[in-house]
Amino acid sequence: MPNMSTNKQLYNGETVSGKTLSDADFMRYSRQVLLPEVGEAGQLQLADACVAIIGLGGLGQLAAQYLACAGVGNLILIDMDKVEVSNLPRQLLFNDGDIGLNKARVAKRKLNNLAPHCTVTAHETAFNAETHADQLADVLLAKQQGKRVLVLDCTDNFATRQSINRCCIEAALPLVSASIAAFSGQLFAVDQMQLPSGGCYQCIFPAQTRVSQSCGTQGVLGSSVGVMASMQSLVAMQLLLSMDSDCDKAQNSLLGHFWRFDAKSLVWTSAALTRDPHCNVCGSKELHPSFNMHSKLHSMEI
């Protein structure tokens, strides 16, 4: 995998890997490319990246816009729900004319306009044991090809969150998860390959955890959902741009943290994640850095 330290040496606009940004892309992404943390190499890395966004509600519809417009080359959008009128105050990608249409399908169409260079795939199905192998096949393929990959959990219920976590652990995919209900937001990033000591979602909240909070029952302000989606996107961008773990402590310090946001006081609280050695999702499994895709897809069936 080309990393930024070797790929970033610019000489007449040439990178070591031989790829360069077009003049149009230099203009378009100039405010990002100006950052030493991005540069031309980082922008090219984003163009190669593949990110799955599960859930196109308040969180997912905004994260999808940020990532697509920032130049992430491949987005996989997964949602079986249809746009409802009660979504519109916070899901700004959608409007009245979209009511009744599938969210992933509408989001794909709109992102094609906002970010024509982003290849968007829409899966209009629920994320579950029957569907996820198909939904994440492109992400796993990109991972095998050495490209940057990421899964964003933007869903609205605990059971699906558990299932996404399990799937990411088993397929060794990095996961950035955000959630919000009422005035409480939560955000964390885990990556079994880069930081196994951070454990997983199940280590924090075992499957039998009682959960009462959802936007549907508790309500939420659109702007606070936007804060969480923006932070999730920010973590995602930095993970997509980060170099290998040993040489970039700063980027990887985003892994293995659990942040809570109090949308009333605007206070963020951070805690370190610790692995539960007895966790039945991440605790006992042998993880392999490179795996056979077919055997992996099979073993992913929960």
């Binding site: 509600g57 869903t155 959630s179 939560q186 959960v211 909070q213 809570r260």
Partner: peptide, 22 residues
């Protein structure tokens, strides 16, 4: 580990529930 960890003087505990909405 909750059963086996004894609280020490000046420990700071934060309790919170899972938020699953989005």
């Amino acid at each position: 580990r909750w059963q086996s960890i004894l609280c020490q003087h000046e420990d700071k505990l934060e309790l919170f529930s899972a938020v699953a909405g989005g």
